[in-house]
């Protein structure tokens, strides 16, 4: 059996070798991080976004690169998934964007703050994370994905947050399957411009949509029969 001095030698040599290897790998990693994280894309705005991300402890509920708390959605690809319009809306009045759901803190962000945070998310979404976050392997098949592609961008990024279509999307509001048979174009147009005007007390927020987007959505939803 080992003597105490042999045990000590095992500890010291093992630790020493591992520490040297670890420091070596760290040096190598730092030489590769700039390319992998597109370090040159870190503008002043991205930096400010990161500062805001930290000074408000966003990681205390959300995850970014899978790191943080598990109370609110993962935000690595949020720019691609939700788009700038939605993110800005969320940062302005979170409770309106997810009515009656798990609450996010309301912050008094200036327009510049919001731009900085959007820039930060946009940068984060472009970092090569070795395949994270994964595409759900058991999600409904390719036919579904093809259907998704016919959806207008604003629908995919904004409407699906709360509403589902063909089984994909949120469950905060009602499903939009067959909405075209229930509601006509005029109603949809009025509804999307200002929901509370049509139905006072509705939980659906007035979204910052352009006229072109509203027309696009009216056509798209009208076709859902």
């Amino acid at each position: 059996m080992l003597s105490k001095s042999q045990a000590r030698a095992f500890f010291l040599i093992g630790t020493g070798l591992c520490a040297v290897a670890f420091i070596g790998l760290t040096v190598d990693t730092f030489s590769r991080i700039p390319a992998q994280t597109k370090h040159d894309d870190i503008t002043e705005e991205v930096k400010r976004g990161k500062d805001l991300w930290e000074s408000n402890n966003c990681m205390g509920c959300h995850t970014l690169f899978g790191e943080g708390a598990y109370y609110a959605p993962e935000l690595t690809k949020v720019y691609e998934r939700r788009g700038e319009q939605f993110i800005r809306g969320m940062l302005t009045d979170p409770a309106a964007m997810y009515p009656g759901e798990r609450k996010m803190q309301k912050y008094d962000f200036s327009e510049d703050d919001k731009t900085a945070l959007v820039a930060f998310f946009k940068w984060a979404g472009g970092v090569d994370l070795n395949g994270f976050p994964p595409t759900p392997p058991l999600a409904q098949g390719t036919a579904q994905t093809a259907k998704l592609d016919t959806q207008p961008l604003v629908f995919k990024q904004t409407c699906t947050v709360c509403h589902a279509l063909d089984g994909q999307g949120g469950t905060v509001g009602p499903s939009l399957d067959g909405v075209g048979t229930r509601l006509d174009a005029d109603y949809l147009r009025k509804w999307l411009r200002d929901p509370t005007n049509v139905k006072p007390g509705t939980k659906m927020p007035k979204l910052p949509l352009t006229d072109a987007q509203i027309e696009e959505l009216v056509t798209f939803l009208g076709s859902k029969r």
Binding site: F11, G14, T15, C18, A19, A21, F22, L25, D28, T29, R32, I33, Q36, T37, F65, G66, E67, V127, D128, L129, N130, G131, F132
Partner: peptide, 19 residues
């Protein structure tokens, strides 16, 4: 230490560090 030091690698899978 034999496992723990280089085991730090399990935090470096998906944060933008080499494969």
């Amino acid at each position: 230490f034999l496992s723990g030091i280089l085991g730090t690698g399990h935090h470096y899978y998906y944060i933008g560090t080499p494969r």
